[in-house]
């Protein structure tokens, strides 16, 4: 089943009189359960494409369909609802709320989705165990290492049981050991829960975990390992 369908999207940024084409007619389909890497050099459009798929931004032209729904037609609030219910995010900079504890950070999407306290408690503890941070539930982000913070971010992304998790350079700020641990957790969760992962990276060690590699260059897909197309 298709989780993501991107149809010929472009994204043009206008900064003053300068027009930058970040994406130039990208089409891509990602099936349920894939573990897909978007690779390419800086400025190739990886992050922009993730933002389009994640409903954080809207394409200038073209269409993005997530779980059967055309998200390019949604308004601001509807896109927020779509992110809350269907998409989890993992960012390069860990992206935890510094005033909330580990537990509360993971709980946040569940609160927004209106889960009961019991449901939230069970789900949060289940996820913290899965990322091996149950004993850090009451710590604030500044009391955790970078690798631990990224594992909290993974748990938070998984909390609402999304169909899709998008990760932008998830290991870029981590040392090798922590980077490997994060990727192994992501891979394990992908295999155990079947959730679809799409992650942007240019780290060859990270790419090796992917079951599919989509290579971008200058805003177009240069290569897709699934189709072998160039």
């Amino acid at each position: 089943m298709e989780v993501v369908k991107v149809e010929n999207i472009t994204r043009v940024y206008q900064i003053g009189k300068v027009e930058t084409r970040a994406l130039q007619g990208v089409s891509l389909t990602i099936e349920d359960g894939e573990f897909t890497a978007l690779v390419g050099p800086s400025g190739s459009g990886k992050t922009t494409l993730l933002q389009m798929i994640g409903c954080l931004d809207q394409p200038s032209t073209g269409r993005v369909v997530i779980s059967g729904q055309d998200v390019t037609r949604l308004n601001r609030n509807q896109r927020a609802d779509m992110r809350r219910g269907h998409i989890g995010f993992i960012f390069q900079f860990f992206a935890l709320i510094p005033t909330l504890t580990t537990y509360e950070n993971v709980e946040m999407p569940l609160l927004l989705n209106g889960h009961t306290p019991k449901e939230r408690r069970e789900r949060v503890m289940e996820l913290l165990k899965a990322v091996d941070l149950a004993d850090r539930a009451n710590n604030r982000p500044d009391q955790l290492s970078g690798g631990q913070q990224q594992r909290v971010a993974i748990a938070r992304a998984l909390a609402p049981k999304p169909a899709l998790i998008l990760a932008d350079e998830p290991t870029a700020n981590l040392d090798t050991a922590n980077g490997r641990q994060v990727m192994e957790i992501m891979k394990k969760l992908n295999q155990e829960t079947g959730v679809t992962f799409v992650f942007a990276t240019h780290d060859p060690r990270v790419i090796s975990y992917a079951t599919r590699v989509v290579t971008l260059k200058d805003g177009v897909i240069e290569k897709d390992s699934a189709s072998g197309a160039k």
């Binding site: 994640g54 954080l56 927020a80 609802d81 992110r83 809350r84 960012f91 709320i97 946040m108 927004l112």
Partner: peptide, 8 residues
């Protein structure tokens, strides 16, 4: 971040 996790 709050917006990304779906906060309206």
């Amino acid at each position: 971040i709050l917006s990304a996790v779906g906060m309206r």
